[in-house]
Simulated scan of single mutants.
Amino acid sequence: MPPRPDGPEEVTISGDDDVVRVRQLVRVYAQRAKLSLVDQTKLVTAASELARNTLVYGGGGTALVEEVDDGRRTGVRASFRDEGPGIPDLTLALADGWSSGKGLGLGLSGARRLVDHFELDTEVGRGTVVTVVKWKR
C-alpha cells in the first residue's frame, strides 16, 4: 500500500492535546478519502483509542496518518509507534472485553474490530507499533 502523493503527516503524542490532534487529523484524512460517515467514525474512534494507548502505556510516541491506494481501492492508514515497555501478554491485551480501564474502554480488540486491517508489533523492552487501515467501500 504505497502512500498517496499528498503525503503522510506525523503527530508527536506527548499529552492529551496531541490525542485530540490525532483524532482531528484522522478525521480530515477520512473525509478526504471519502469514507462514509460511519466508517469515518469507526476509524476516528479506533485512532483515538490507539493514540491514548500510545500516551498512557507507551509513555508517548508518534502517529503517522496517510491516504493509501492498493490499486483497487483507497483508504486511510494510521500507525502508532512508541518506545515504551511493550506488551508483555499480547493474548490478554487482544482478548475481547479486556481493558485496563484507562482508555475509551475499547481495548485493542475493540479498535481491531472497527477497522479493516489491524497489525500489531510489540516486544517487551522495545515498544509497540500498531497500524490500522480503513478502506473506502
Rank of each mutant, 00 (worst) to 15 (best):
M1Y: 00
R4K: 07
R4N: 07
R4Q: 09
D6T: 10
D6S: 09
G7D: 04
P8K: 07
P8V: 03
P8M: 02
E10C: 02
V11E: 05
I13N: 10
S14T: 12
G15A: 05
D16T: 04
D17F: 08
V19L: 11
V20P: 14
V22W: 03
R23E: 13
Q24V: 10
Q24I: 08
L25Q: 01
L25N: 04
L25W: 00
V26M: 01
V26N: 00
R27Q: 10
V28K: 09
A30Y: 02
A30C: 01
Q31R: 15
R32T: 07
K34I: 13
L37Y: 15
V38C: 09
D39E: 01
D39C: 03
T41S: 12
T41P: 03
T41W: 06
K42G: 05
L43P: 07
L43N: 06
V44D: 05
A46S: 11
S48C: 15
S48M: 14
S48L: 15
S48D: 15
E49P: 03
E49W: 00
E49S: 08
L50P: 09
L50F: 03
N53G: 01
L55S: 01
Y57S: 06
Y57D: 00
G58Q: 04
G58N: 01
G58S: 02
G59R: 08
G59T: 01
G61N: 07
G61L: 02
G61R: 07
T62M: 00
A63Q: 07
L64P: 13
L64H: 08
V65H: 06
E67M: 14
E67C: 12
E67Q: 15
V68P: 08
V68K: 13
D69H: 07
D69S: 03
D69K: 06
D70A: 05
D70C: 10
D70K: 11
G71P: 13
G71H: 09
R72H: 14
G75M: 02
F80D: 02
F80K: 07
F80V: 06
R81G: 04
D82Y: 00
D82L: 03
E83N: 06
E83T: 04
E83S: 05
G84M: 00
P85W: 03
P88A: 04
D89F: 00
D89R: 04
T91D: 12
A93D: 14
A93P: 15
D96F: 10
D96H: 14
W98M: 12
S100K: 12
S100A: 12
G101K: 14
G103R: 10
L104N: 04
L104V: 01
L104A: 04
G105A: 08
G107S: 08
L108T: 13
S109D: 13
S109F: 06
G110P: 10
V115R: 14
V115I: 11
D116P: 12
D116I: 08
H117I: 07
F118G: 10
E119T: 13
E119V: 10
E119H: 12
T122R: 14
E123L: 00
G125K: 10
G127D: 03
T128L: 03
V129W: 14
V130G: 02
T131K: 09
T131I: 03
T131H: 05
V132L: 04
W135D: 07
W135A: 11
K136R: 14
K136P: 09
K136E: 08
R137Y: 08
